[in-house]
Design a protein around this nucleic acid. Structure first.
Lengths: 320, 320
DNA sequence: CTTGAAAATAGGAACGTTCCTATTGGCTGG
DNA sequence: CCAGCCAATAGGAACGTTCCTATTTTCAAG
């Protein structure tokens, strides 16, 4: 019955103090290179694996980042998660994912988990109206980055798409096709991106000299629940649809075919779907890279003033 | 400068030993209900949050489950992750997700992370040919459940779909449409599900008195890379396609339209895509529930003999 | 009252690290 | 030849829990 390898067992085997082993494993310059080598060899021989929990408890750093998203099953989020995980892993941070179901209560719970698990940082795409969840992190002194959605007051680093411009591009595209009564499917819950996309929609209508009709704006869950019901409830006729995101658009398409649609997020780029629908896209890889860079920078220096980055968007036409 | 609330600060405030506080917080019957109440009140007052890391270090149980999957961005996996997370959270287990990119090396690394983080259990959809990664868990005495893919020797609890039957159903469907030269896009890497689906394909061809043509079976990455190249390399003519999964099928469809296709996994059920393609489905909710139940049972009693569950599959026709 | 056991609480070690403060040995300079 | 210093190592406390083993209190029975 071989007992688990710890710095203690290594220390005993090499004939040196635990402290020396600890330092050697950290590749500290304080320990002689000969001893260092012997320690490393013995560690390898015993199949030593550092106990990250003990390390975290003592050092206060867990080498862990929490990712808080509304819907892991949304391919855009899934891709962001994938990219963020990879990048953070490169920097020796393990990632754990918290799915909030776009529910503010669950978001709060997620933050509690993040603080309990002593996350070194958090990336969140918030579904809260208020800053309650963020305050929780603030009190625990955990650096936080907002991804994809933001708040009016810039209190943390933020990376968002140019949602308003996206809304304009999408709507102009439909106007260009001759649509005059464009239905806008927006997301419930006072999400910044939804608000901005809608403003862009209104901008474009204004440019074209068209009035905004409340009857042509419908709110549904960002998860895509209740789309068909919402469509049935539309009494005014319409000749085109601009949806908050591709998931909503697709769901609507199966109900209202043969109308021009524009979506958002360009999910097709992540998951190759044989559906040809124009959508608004941004560079997700660049977005993830930027997010990681910013969060790591903040973790290194909490005094930096928060930065806000807006990524350019483009309309991807139906062809591809 | 209010210092962090710990059982020690609570103990001091209530005027009782740390031990008593610890027990009270665990709702132990050893501590008098009066004291218990006073402790809980003080804990709430101080905004106490248990340090899960310290708890894990001391108790050996981290209240954590690792989910190891090949591709988080695949909607089927994403949905399984979502369901598993929810269910485990109900039982007070936090989940962390490890994406292996269908790469055996990364799978091994993921297992190392799981052991380092002292996961109480692991759910894995393995991409390894060998049992190396599983041995790692075995040595660390971490219960493990195989989900979606399996090995010949039943050493751990297993939940899989009836892949072979799925292959038969899919192929029979194409045969029923009059196809006689069916291309099969299978997954590289000796994955059990791919093997079984292919066997089913061969079964069905046999039933119809058709020979298996090697030229009509093409291997591609399970991630869907290189599908178009693989299609271009097919020299034999074909009149229908059965793909290892929907992602591959969709990707192929954009290259080879106007042929009957059958996919696998019925992703459309998770993410509402306006693409009408027959696919093989199983009850994902039941699958997740079963997986959770089995893993929890094993965590409670490691001596139980391993169980193997095969979920029935059905063909979902194009209409829906 | 005293006794004994059960109920309630206390005290300290332990989990595996890291951090802080010694202690040792060897070497240089005057 | 010794003060002084630097490099290398050692020792022990600490992180916040839980676990194991005492100790005290309570209270019914004799």
């Amino acid at each position: 019955m071989p007992q688990r390898a710890t710095i203690k067992t290594i220390a005993k085997a090499v004939g040196v103090a635990v402290n020396t082993v600890s330092l050697a494993l950290q590749d500290s310059s304080l320990v002689a290179s000969g001893t260092k080598q012997r320690v490393l060899e013995e560690a390898a021989r015993q199949g030593y694996q550092r106990d990250v929990l003990a390390q975290a408890l003592r050092s206060g750093r867990s080498h862990t980042i929490a990712l808080v998203f509304g819907d892991v099953a949304n391919p855009l989020f899934a891709m962001k998660i994938k990219l963020l995980s990879q990048a953070f892993r490169m920097h020796d941070y393990q990632v754990f994912i918290l799915d909030t179901d776009e529910n503010p209560q669950q978001e709060l719970a997620a933050m509690r988990v993040a603080t309990q698990r002593k996350a070194d940082g958090v990336v969140v795409c918030p579904c809260q109206q208020g800053r309650e969840a963020l305050e929780l992190l603030h009190r625990a002194q955990i650096p936080c980055l907002l991804l994809g959605r933001e708040f009016d007051t810039l209190a943390e680093d933020t990376v968002v798409w140019d949602d308003r411009e996206g809304g304009r591009l999408a709507t102009r595209h439909l106007l260009g096709l001759g649509c005059r009564r464009i239905l806008h499917l927006t997301a419930r819950g006072d999400i910044s991106s939804a608000r901005q996309r809608r403003l862009g929609y209104e901008d474009a209508l204004g440019e074209a000299g068209l009035a905004v009709e409340e009857g042509l704006i419908r709110e549904v869950s960002p998860l895509g629940e209740g789309v068909t019901e919402a469509l049935q409830a539309v009494t005014t006729p319409f000749d085109g649809v601009f949806a908050f995101n591709d998931l909503l658009a697709w769901q609507a398409m199966s109900r209202v075919p043969d109308l021009p649609f524009v979506g958002f997020d360009h999910i097709r780029a992540q998951i190759c779907v044989p559906v040809s629908m124009p959508s608004i896209a941004a560079d997700v890889r660049a977005e993830a890279a930027l997010a990681v860079e910013l969060l790591l920078a903040r973790m290194a220096d909490s005094q930096r003033p928060p930065e806000r980055h807006v990524l350019p968007v483009r309309l991807v036409e139906a062809g591809k």
